[in-house]
């Protein structure tokens, strides 16, 4: 039996996810936006592993592996886009990309 209650794990995951959402809304630097996305991915993965550990099934860990691979692909594309944005606008402010003219 799990000695950590399920609600505590979900609470921590929720707090981490909330911090990620707030960072995503507040920060304008594209690298910090990507970091906030990583925080949210990590929080969701934590929730999956907590749930999987609660039922002692490997499914939560499998889902965490999927999230891990998706986060890796996402951050690779996001950083390539950040390089492109900096090359075009000479700035990492995401608001500078509000005019998309190709």
């Amino acid at each position: 039996m799990l000695t950590i209650p399920l609600e505590y794990g979900f609470l921590v995951a929720g707090i981490l996810f909330l911090i990620g959402v707030l960072g995503l809304l507040v920060r304008r630097n594209l690298l910090f936006v990507l970091l906030s996305l990583e925080i949210m991915f990590n929080a969701v993965g934590l929730a999956f592993v907590v749930a999987g550990a609660s039922w002692q099934q490997p499914d939560g860990q499998v889902m965490f592996l999927f999230i891990l691979a998706m986060a890796a692909a996402e951050v690779a594309i996001g950083l390539a886009l950040a390089l492109q944005l900096y090359k075009i606008t000479r700035s990492l402010d995401v608001d500078s990309a509000s005019q998309m003219r190709g």
Binding site: L2, I4, G9, V12, E38, N42, G45, L46, V49, V50, G52, A53, Q56, G60, Q61, F64, L65, L68, A71, A72
Partner: peptide
């Protein structure tokens, strides 16, 4: 470390290695 405490050492190692 939370993963390790929850009894999931495999994803704890993956968290360090990959993330």
């Amino acid at each position: 470390l939370i993963f390790y405490l929850l009894g999931a050492p495999f994803v704890a190692a993956l968290e360090i290695i990959i993330y």
